[in-house]
């Protein structure tokens, strides 16, 4: 993309997380632009909860999120694949013992 022609500084970007109902975790639903946290929260309410989607909203400045690098996916997430002993199915228990 070419650089913007000039003019207005950008309005900060916020990530929006919504708890659909109590008992569920907040889930990322999208992002929006707002000059400050109060406006971001109101905009999140008006944009992402028009159909009763939420009981609680978090807004987080997008710039505050540190993301893992997919190029490091191998190093980050693959070593765990071989640790099969962390899963219950790794252990053999005779059927006669019943559910454990």
């Amino acid at each position: 993309m070419t650089e913007p022609a000039a003019s207005e500084p950008k309005v900060p970007l916020w990530e929006v997380f919504i708890r659909a109902r109590n008992g569920l975790a907040h889930k990322h639903v999208g992002s929006l632009h707002a000059a400050d946290a109060t406006l971001a929260l109101q905009a999140a309410r008006d944009l992402y909860t028009r159909r009763g989607e939420g009981l609680s909203i978090w807004v987080v400045p997008s710039a505050a999120i540190t993301a893992s690098d997919p190029a490091e996916k191998g190093m980050m997430f693959e070593p765990t694949a071989s640790k099969v002993y962390r899963h219950p199915t790794f252990y053999e228990i005779p059927d006669e013992v019943g559910h454990m």
Partner: peptide, 8 residues
């Protein structure tokens, strides 16, 4: 004045 404000 802002698209977010359209919603409000």
């Amino acid at each position: 004045p802002l698209m977010e404000e359209e919603m409000a």
